[in-house]
Design a protein around this nucleic acid. Structure first.
Lengths: 245, 245
DNA sequence: CCAATTAATTGATATTTATCACTTGCAAAT
DNA sequence: ATTTGCAAGTGATAAATATCAATTAATTGG
């Protein structure tokens, strides 16, 4: 029952048969590291995709379940989060098309180290982890690319850890707002796809505190904010708030 | 001047000439992943070691400096730490013989993402990162081993992040004490090699709080503690304190 | 062995941040 | 259109934790 969330999409996609490849092909184009593959390796990848769709809130990967697949989003957005102490979640990142979703557990204990849940409607492409393992062994450039990919994530989580530990609430929230602007939407004006609760799970704040500090930022003219939209008005100041802690 | 800390050992060891290989050879025996190498690959590794010694407090690697080398400790212990907001450090882990020290920055921006400083007297063996990069490309099993190594570290830092975010002080300190017992000393009785200040940098607590909570743990019979020694008396209870947060 | 630092301890107080108990707003479902 | 059910906002309060100031150990270089 715990594992349903992981296996169901596979079953669905196996049943749905032929239209799998179309949206998955876009994944091979978008993730840089697939460019290191030979034609036949790429073909092998393209023959082993499984697609599934998810509605907001549905779980793509469940922490603790067997890590047999890596995945990419073909469309939509998801949150990756760790289920921590007494059910309190910790949102690690926002997943979006073009980025590999494969937790470090794949190489350690074959269990997912975090859960992934759809925020919007999501088309997800699953690919067996064995395919990746094989490519790492036979293609040195691909292996190096995998190391780069996991290294970037690892560096981010170091930075993140220090930020969480050393910044006070305004700094942490500012950091999250900048993450959305720079890493996710690549725009200083965006839909806030997370609830206050979730924004709190990302910045380690109570949902009430998120609201209060968002209001302060608005009152001081740094951002415009309503329930569903964020607009950064004074980016320099927001960066200062984030950096200073 | 910033980089002296990194290059000096190399220069020293180059000058000191012939007795380099001895202690470094022990590194190739202790790190599991070297077993994937062929005889000639291993020889190549063994021809490219540089050794240096450090006194307590001396810096082996400096955050921000060029990441041109990986390293192993042949003897002694060191702390790896991130220099965070206004000079406040965050200790990530304790380095000891048998473990690869190579930050994720090696594969991202060729800069060290953290500093490493000796706690005790340390013999360190440096090896050019290019040697590793080459091995990753030509030896699939080695590449896989590198991915495993970095994955383990990445998983730890995820766990660590959640712990920091969600546990209160006693839970965080209990976790650190268990880390020393289980991961570092493999004994429930050990020398506390970190000062209260440093223990605070590891658990995100003020040094005064470290002392107070250590005292509470002692008064409730969970540990014995004096300035320099820790003895875990009731491990189950300590684990409960750590898990519950 | 002793001055001179550095680290640890202690108690009082200030900050930061969470929690609680409501109220309000909004949107989906009947 | 009205209910129903969350998500958001508010103010008061409590909890956790840092900071400060003053001592008291420990260390260590001379």
């Amino acid at each position: 029952m715990l594992f349903n969330a992981t296996f169901e999409p596979l079953i669905l996609s196996i049943m749905s048969g032929k239209n799998l490849i179309e949206s998955c092909a876009s994944c091979t184009e978008r993730w840089k590291n697939f460019r290191t593959l030979t034609k036949s390796e790429l073909q092998h990848v393209n023959e082993n995709w499984y697609e599934a769709t998810f509605k907001p809130g549905e779980i793509l990967l469940k922490q603790g379940s067997p890590a047999s697949n890596a995945l990419f989003l073909a469309s939509g957005m998801a949150k990756t989060y760790i289920e921590g102490i007494n059910g309190k979640n910790f949102i690690m990142s926002i997943a979006m098309p073009g980025r590999l979703i494969m937790g470090p557990g794949a190489y350690v204990n074959s269990r997912h180290t975090y859960s992934v849940a759809a925020i919007t409607n999501v088309q997800a492409c699953f690919i067996s982890f064995e395919v990746f393992r094989h490519l790492v062994r036979v293609n040195g450039a691909f292996a190096e690319g995998m190391l780069e990919d996991i290294s970037v994530k690892s560096m981010r989580s170091h930075t993140r850890m220090v930020n969480l530990a050393q910044k006070k609430m305004p700094g942490r929230l500012a950091e999250a707002l900048l993450y959305f602007a720079d890493d996710i939407f690549k725009s200083d004006e965006y839909e806030m796809i997370l609830s206050r609760q979730e924004l709190g799970e990302m910045t380690n704040m109570a949902k009430e505190s998120v609201g209060r500090i968002l209001k302060e930022l608005e009152e001081s003219g740094v951002i415009y904010s309503d329930a569903s939209k964020i607009k950064i008005l004074d980016k320099d100041k927001l960066i200062v708030i984030s950096n200073r802690g």
